[in-house]
Design a protein around this nucleic acid. Sequence first.
DNA 1: CAGTATCCGATCCGATACTG
DNA 2: CAGTATCGGATCGGATACTG
Lengths: 155, 155
Amino acid sequence: MAPQEGTAVFDRHTAVTIAEFDGGSGEKKFRKIFEEAQQTRNGPCPVRDVIARISDKWSLLTILLLGGYGTLRFNEIRHRIGDISQRMLTVTLRHLEEDGLVSRRIYAEVPPRVEYDLTPLGRSLMEQVSLLTEWATLNGTSILDARRSSRRKGR
Amino acid sequence: MAPQEGTAVFDRHTAVTIAEFDGGSGEKKFRKIFEEAQQTRNGPCPVRDVIARISDKWSLLTILLLGGYGTLRFNEIRHRIGDISQRMLTVTLRHLEEDGLVSRRIYAEVPPRVEYDLTPLGRSLMEQVSLLTEWATLNGTSILDARRSSRRKGR
DNA sequence: CAGTATCCGATCCGATACTG
DNA sequence: CAGTATCGGATCGGATACTG
């Protein structure tokens, strides 16, 4: 069980940690995932790209909203989210539409009516995101506690 | 099956979409998830908070890396990610540590040695994130294709 | 109703220089 | 080795005013 890939010599405690980790369920898989997420340096990579696109203040929330309520009009989305500006909702929806995650249907009426919905692709993403969200509701207080106690101890 | 909550009258196509969606697996659950993600307006909410914290360029990638390789030293992380600046790695790791997702062990040696690892909380998050990443590797090309064809069509 | 257009402050993030 | 400190450009995102 010699160290590889330039990792330093382990002390006893670390060795145990690594051993436990290696004994667990498929660390190779996670390594592969990370490596795939790394291809950006040599060319475009979907993982980093997806991360970049959903890493903003409103995308995930919008996807969750459309996932939960189905077809919605512009101002329905706006008011359900509540504290999103008109500009940012427009920008967010355009991005999601460009990526094929949200569909946009315009009805030639006066006053205009525009309906948004998740595409099948968007719905499949929403299912993953909802799992992440469930994790957050379960473990969010742990994070907030850790954050508070870390701040109380200074820095 | 009357419309509720202020939604407009549906045309036939939309009605079908909604019906299919309602007939599916538990849209109420997603509604609940979204509503929980909404509590921020009335007070702090874990979901929006977690979203805000991982919504940056490097957090998810760092979590994936530590998940895949276990204990790593500062420069090991740095070089495996490759294109992260020293400053951003420090900032990212401090945030993750504050939130109790990453542990930091300092060894009183010269030259200094600092080892990072996921905490159990961080590991459980990593498992969710890795699912999201698997989705991205599977569907990333669909997104890139959609984006490209949307850009080709102008705007 | 569903946007656009413009402005501007906040923050993110990289580059660089320095340090225990 | 593993940081900290400082600067400046880029981008994000809110407020406001206007429009088909």
